[in-house]
Nucleic acid binder design. Structure first.
Length: 272
DNA sequence: AGCGGAACCTGTCGGC
DNA sequence: TGCCGACAGGTTCCGC
């Protein structure tokens, strides 16, 4: 499911509802997300902890507890956090329940079991976080930075946008939408883009991601906010999932192609 | 160093 | 109706 705007939507929801709350107990229904940690160990280490803060880094959610303990969560394709009143029976894809004070449950739900929940003691020592590239909405995303990233790469620009070690947070939907906005073909080799085009890629990236956050993310099938409401950005997509439909800019049919085993959608006429 | 491809899981949808 | 393949918002590992 979720790319940066969806994770940001979830984090903002959790900040309002679970920050400052105590985890009274934890129940693991399936250990895939917490493996290789043992469920009992996971449950024990979190019981009695207070959630000091919930933040986002790229597509990761970071829950901070008392000094030196963090829960690093990744939703992958179908992971969800849902905050609800106490419930008696887990639903089919509920993987972990976090019981909070004031009779609230934070549910980790994940149909495909790709999502991960990892306990870490330091953010700076965590390899997964250390290897991430710049935040696309930060001032670190600049033309010189992009130039350096692509200088010795033969990859196409679509794949570069998806490379989390360079820019961290863009996924398959927004990569297509960004390149449509920038009027650049996903097939272009990154290292052949001129400075002016890199500037357009950056501007479009920030424009699309900011708007998507304002619309609470994109719900095509699975993504839901923590109260199970959908996002609204799916109503503003220009090309993703729109194969054969007329380009909103020039009316030529949108094409679907496969790059690096994933769908790309673009207009072969107005994206050069 | 960096690339492509397979793997991890479960579900849905379309074609035959 | 049932079976089969393609496809799904992501990352990681392995071999070249």
């Amino acid at each position: 499911m979720p790319e940066l705007p969806e994770v940001e939507t979830v984090v903002r929801g959790l900040q309002e509802t679970v920050t400052g709350r105590e985890i009274t107990s934890v129940k693991v229904f399936r250990d895939t997300p917490i493996a290789p940690l043992n469920p009992k160990t996971f449950e024990k280490r979190l019981a009695g902890r207070s959630i000091q803060s919930v933040t986002r880094r790229a597509k990761y959610l970071v829950f901070q507890f008392d000094p030196g303990l963090y829960l690093l969560a990744h939703l992958r394709m179908t992971g969800k956090f849902i905050v609800s009143p106490l419930i008696s029976k887990p639903e089919k894809h509920h993987r972990v329940w976090f019981f909070l004070d004031k009779d609230i449950v934070m549910v980790f739900d994940d149909m495909r079991c790709f999502g991960t929940l990892e306990l870490i003691e330091s953010l700076t020592d965590c390899n997964k976080l250390r290897l991430l590239g710049v935040e696309p909405l930060s001032s670190s995303l600049t033309v010189p930075y992009l130039k350096k990233c692509i200088a010795h790469s033969s990859s196409n620009i679509k794949n570069l946008l998806l490379n989390q070690t360079k820019i961290a947070g863009i996924g398959n939907i927004y990569a297509s939408e960004i390149l449509f906005d920038a009027q650049i073909s996903p097939l272009r080799q990154g290292c052949q883009l001129k400075a002016k085009e890199l500037r357009k890629v950056i501007d479009s990236t920030q424009k699309i991601l900011t708007t998507a956050i304002q619309k609470n993310g994109t719900s095509i099938s699975d993504f839901r906010r923590i109260d199970e409401q959908t996002g609204e950005f799916q109503n503003f997509l220009n090309v993703y999932g729109k194969a054969e439909q007329p380009c909103p800019r020039c009316s030529v049919p949108i094409q679907r192609i496969v790059q690096q085993q994933r769908s790309s959608f673009y207009c072969a006429s107005c994206q050069q």
